[in-house]
Amino acid sequence: MDNNATLTTSPSTLEKKPTGLKLFFTRLLQQRMLVLMSIPFVIWLVIFKYVPIWGWTIAFQDYQPGLKFSEQQWVGFKHFKILFTDETFSDQFLRAVRNTLAMSGINLILGFVSAITLALLLNEVRKVAFKRVVQTVSYLPHFISWVVAAGIIQTTLAPDGVINELLKWIGVIDKGQEYLFLGKAEWFWGIFGASSVWKDIGWNTIVYLAAISSIDPAQYEAAEMDGAGRLRRMWYITLPGIKPVVIVLLIMNIGYLMESGFEPQYLLGNGMNVDYSENIDIFVLKYGLQQFNFPLATAAGMFKTVVSFILLFSANHIAKRMGQERLF
């Protein structure tokens, strides 16, 4: 069999021919190098990404660490029922779900508004050097870990921190009235939102600035000739110009609503703000690895992944139907 013939045979004709399977293996043998280069990593993928999905079975068992899989006792949806109805757990779990949705929602809205605003402002800067400096500086917090960021945020918000000093200086509070910001539970969502904006505002502008740079300059010239000022050009040309990108990213981010993050909440959370900082991921960590209730924690994690999957899948589908390019 010569090389050309195998290359041009399409899969559909393959199935019809009686020699289809044989042909498939002939080609597989010819492409053994490609197989060798990729299949070991598929095996890796199965072990590290698919085997844990099999681990969901724990959620349906009264899992005992010492026992074999066949010896475990199956209990159906018992642990899911506990999550949603049991007095001791459901309050905390539902609180964790609320906190997850609230924080990712806040993050979504603040993240979009702040990044788009910054991109619009940067686009109006005429001095190239200044623009470059601002951009480089604004990327900085993205490159530090949440551990470092949390340390900085704690220092800034401490009673002797710079925010309290600033409040005293402008006369909002007096000496001795300093706020313990991270001790006020109901402020946590706001602090989390502000921290996330601080960390990623610059990074998030990259996509918008790229979209802005692909807008046809002739549009701006035409608008200028018609007497449109810079604010109007921003509103009527730049914003509509990046609309498709904004919509796709917005839809994709709605798919990630169950992912509110783990590190900032864990690192900034404390006993005083736990009512507002504990999200599903922290709930899983607490019950799973600190109290060793593996089935309950796995059930909570599984609930999160399944809801996430539905959200992501719908988001992707909607983006496709709107005629925008899907992420994948």
Binding site: G55, W56, F313
Partner: peptide, 13 residues
């Protein structure tokens, strides 16, 4: 990308 085992199954693995 869409689906992952989560914290506990990963830890046990």
């Amino acid at each position: 990308m869409y689906i992952n085992g989560g914290l506990i199954p990963n830890f046990l693995l």
